[in-house]
Design a protein around this nucleic acid. Structure first.
Lengths: 133, 133
DNA sequence: GTTCGTGCAAACGGTTTGCAACAAT
DNA sequence: ATTGTTGCAAACCGTTTGCACGAAC
């Protein structure tokens, strides 16, 4: 696992303690956190970070393609450390978001949608996480 | 085409001029409007409508399953008069949303996602509308 | 006359921005 | 010296809410 410092350098982002803390959190969680969840968790390590810095950093990371922002939750943007193509499951009750591996689902037909230049697509599945198993 | 008044009655919603105006607009547009776009358009017919009434009405229509709200645009909820299952195309540049008929795409594999009870799923396609044809 | 709907304005929650202090180069 | 980064507070934008007035049963 590449450390946050060299990762930031590799992406041409000046590494600061705040940015390192954000990257360390956001790249090591499977939760798809909103900005405020990132803030909350980053403050555990780095209690002085401001909300603005977290927002700025997250936007910067998105811009530099280190993470992606996703429109999955009503009212808030969530951030996704997974850069590779994948689908999403959204839990109806908790709103929790789980990655679905790309090969778990296959979409047929998008290649002959006339009139559209497809840049990307994903399946969004909603429902409940099963209690059993 | 059923008129707005009887439609509202059929869904157990007390018909008022404002609600009729909202329904008439939102059920006859292919654009997937945000609340403010609804407000703007409804005001052409009914210039006194308030923002609150539009929001209240839209939420009521969603609750009564006359329309659906969709999380497709960053920062705002859009409303979709199409109740049947379908997919969505989102234009990268304009943000414009277009319905993709259910049968145009086929998703394979969602039935054997272990650990999830699937309530619904849809494909979200992003890209550009092609200029040609 | 009680219930329901409306319009206004204030409140709210997530996000962005302006700015002054402060590194880093 | 210049440029970039931070933290704070204010601004912003979409949405919800409290409330008084008015309409409908």
């Amino acid at each position: 696992m590449e450390d946050a410092l060299t990762l930031l350098r590799r992406f041409g982002i000046q590494p600061t303690p705040q940015r390192i803390a954000v990257v360390e959190y956001v790249l090591n969680t499977a939760a798809h956190p909103a900005a405020d969840e990132v803030l909350e968790n980053v403050r555990r390590k780095c209690p002085t970070v401001s909300r603005a810095t977290v927002y700025n950093t997250l936007n910067l990371l998105v811009e530099k393609r280190l993470i992606r922002s996703q429109v999955l939750r009503e009212g808030t943007t969530v951030f996704d450390p997974s850069i590779e193509k994948h689908h999403h499951f959204v839990d109806d009750e908790s709103g929790r978001i789980v990655d679905i591996p790309w090969k778990a689902l296959k979409v047929i037909g998008q290649e002959n949608l006339r009139g559209f230049e497809v840049r990307e697509y994903q399946v969004i599945v909603r429902g409940r996480r099963r209690k059993t198993r």
